[in-house]
């Protein structure tokens, strides 16, 4: 782990000195994570590829604003998450559920979700299950979607998620809680 951090630090120093090739190592290291995040957020491979590419280029251009006290992956995730949220917001608004309907309880929000339940046959084929899970994630409002994706797809700690989104850990927990309940309505019966 320590060795990895050192490797990343050295790469970043080289990039800051103008060595563009040093960046290729970092792209290689994080491409799957960032692409996966974009895919889960956007639900479309083509858009995900564009978004992930844009995230890496943004990170490169703004490499001087990177604060080495933060993990490099946290910073990359933050850029990619913000980018995908921007893209989601630019889509048609009627695709989304009203985020405020849940109130403080969150458990009531599930009642507002359209319950498109997958049939048992869908669950048989693993690829279909993947699809079903992805569609369920896409039904989540973006603020629940981002925490769910970061937690369960990227396997990040609550602390890291809070750093990526710039939110208190308590808020991350509340959103996870609501996100899980909303997903339970769609996936819990499979």
């Amino acid at each position: 782990m320590y060795f990895m951090d050192l490797f990343i630090k050295k790469r970043i120093k080289a990039i800051q000195k103008g060595d563009q090739n040093a960046y290729a190592d970092l792209v290689d290291l994080y491409k799957d994570k960032i692409y996966r995040l974009c895919y889960r957020m956007l639900g479309n491979r083509h858009e995900a590829e564009d978004a992930a590419q844009e995230a890496f280029i943004r990170a490169y251009i703004h490499i001087d604003t990177y604060n080495p006290e933060m993990k490099f992956s946290t910073w990359l995730y933050r850029i990619a998450t913000n980018l995908t949220i921007d893209k989601l917001r630019k889509r048609k608004p009627d695709v989304y559920l009203d985020e405020e309907v849940g109130g403080t309880d969150g458990l009531t929000m599930q009642a507002q979700l359209p319950s498109r339940e997958a049939s048992p046959e869908e669950a048989v084929e693993s690829l279909e299950l993947q699809e079903t899970v992805q569609r369920a994630i896409e039904r989540l409002p973006e603020k629940y979607r981002s925490v769910i994706v970061l937690k369960y797809m990227e396997d990040l700690s609550l602390q890291e998620i809070s750093e990526i989104l710039g939110l208190p850990v308590g808020t991350v927990k509340t959103r996870l809680h609501r996100g899980r309940e909303a997903l339970r309505r769609q996936l819990g019966h499979l």
């Binding site: 996966r36 369960y152 990227e154 996936l187 499979l190």
Partner: peptide, 8 residues
């Protein structure tokens, strides 16, 4: 399910 679907 979420964890299962993670690998892309």
């Amino acid at each position: 399910f979420l964890q299962y679907a993670a690998h892309v």
